[in-house]
Amino acid sequence: MSLLVAEGLTYVYPGGVPALDHVDLAVARGRRLAVLGPNGAGKTTLLLHLNGTLRPSAGRILLDGAPVAWDRAGLVAWRRRVGLVLQDADDQLFAPTVFEDVSFGPLNLGLARDEAEARVREALEALDIADLADRPTHMLSFGQKKRAAIAGAVAMRPEILLLDEPTAGLDARSARRLLATLEALEAAGATLVFTTHDVVLAHRFAHDAVLFQDGRIVGHGPARDLLRDAAAMDRAGLDAVEA
């Protein structure tokens, strides 16, 4: 059974910009899912629906087969299981230092001080930024901020980790290093869903892929086949991976 399922999601931003149009999607446990599409296709909007940040005007979302609720208790339970890392790390980091920022999620889980601290150390270790623990969040490089933001979500040990363009703006080697880190997290039990503009990376890294265009899904399937399918990729305005 799929871990997270979206059925017929439709969303129009206030002001009348249509962003999602009857989107169906299934996230299977342990299968990395890449979401691809041109700028403005609706990728970010989709991720914001998958952890309840935005509420669809039509459609429903199932977690482990049970429909989710958007009331306070429902959202709390939902976000314990589904973590989200925003596109821009500056939108996520708010505390004076990296350590303090990463501790925010674990404390919201209601963990005791010691346990929260252990979670923070573990997440910083996993993201390879233990040496940055006491650094002010404002004095980090772009890539370091990105890692700090991901650590903030990882410290909550979510079952599903939604990442909005995790490798955008990273140099090739840092991107590879980050992917290796994510793979390790996956081995520890998290299912990864990420958006990206890097078709080659998605082809190499993802198990499944969905193609977005104008708020609609125009293709889905195993990444290996789909991203090499020139016709399907063209429907999403993307270039296929060379065989």
Binding site: R72, F94, E100, P106, N108, A153
Partner: peptide, 25 residues
């Protein structure tokens, strides 16, 4: 706009509008 997105980011980490508590060494 930034404040709005920060709020979404905080909510994603389980913030429900109560205290913004962090661990301060």
């Amino acid at each position: 706009d930034r404040a709005h997105r920060l709020e979404q980011g905080l909510a994603a980490r389980g913030w429900t509008g109560a205290s913004l508590a962090v661990l301060r060494p």
